[in-house]
Design a binder for these strands. Structure first.
Lengths: 103, 103
DNA sequence: AAAACACATGAACACATATAAATATGTTCA
DNA sequence: TGAACATATTTATATGTGTTCATGTGTTTT
């Protein structure tokens, strides 16, 4: 019974997802556009990151279909494209917050 | 309203958790000792990784309190120490599997 | 106590990657 | 069309990290 019978491909995809979530700025970007779609400029302003860096991270997130972008005139609005991931992020953030209260 | 009001420290901890989950072999190790505690030797055999590598990854996972180890004579048995994480892993693995069925 | 077993640690290296700087692409407005 | 704006891409670099090799630590058995 090896590693709970997770197909190799699924494990690769899952690890890749976690890897992308594992970078602080990328995670901030995801939380930033979790509620509603945000333009790149809004993300840049809110997180105080360079436009280049935000675009770069968004590209990686797009590549894994974690976010999707939609143009509206000059701007591109991004939001999370994976419902499981956004739900999970909210869950984990809540849990972490609870943990930190008591112990 | 910046990044859904996640305290900086929580975000750091969360990112660190995801970072650790984001390495394929480490993720395999976690899934491996998800059901019941597994000795280092068992993990080595099941995943076909070197003992050194498994121990190294276990150390990192221990450092983040994702797993805990317990000695029984010569062996040390590891299992996941964070219930939220183990639940989340099962959830994500299930979702990924479903996604891959249809589209 | 010494040998054998199971696991942990330290150092070194090759490779990956986050960031920044410069530049390019695409869109709107004058 | 050209200028201005918003975003994307490319290149370079410094830092991080997964892996291996060699060695160390702790436990049991003879």
């Amino acid at each position: 019974m090896s590693e709970s019978d997770i197909p190799a491909h699924n494990l690769t995809v899952l690890a890749e997802t976690f890897r992308l979530l594992g970078e602080p700025n990328r995670l901030r970007i995801l939380f930033c556009c979790l509620q509603r779609p945000k333009s790149v400029g809004e993300i840049v302003d809110e997180l105080e990151l360079s436009q280049t860096l935000v675009s770069h991270h968004l590209r990686l997130l797009r590549g894994a279909r974690l976010v999707k972008g939609q143009r509206k005139a000059k701007q591109v609005f991004y939001d999370i494209d994976d419902r499981h991931v956004s739900d999970m992020l909210i869950d984990m953030a809540t849990h972490i917050d609870e943990e930190h209260h008591d112990h």
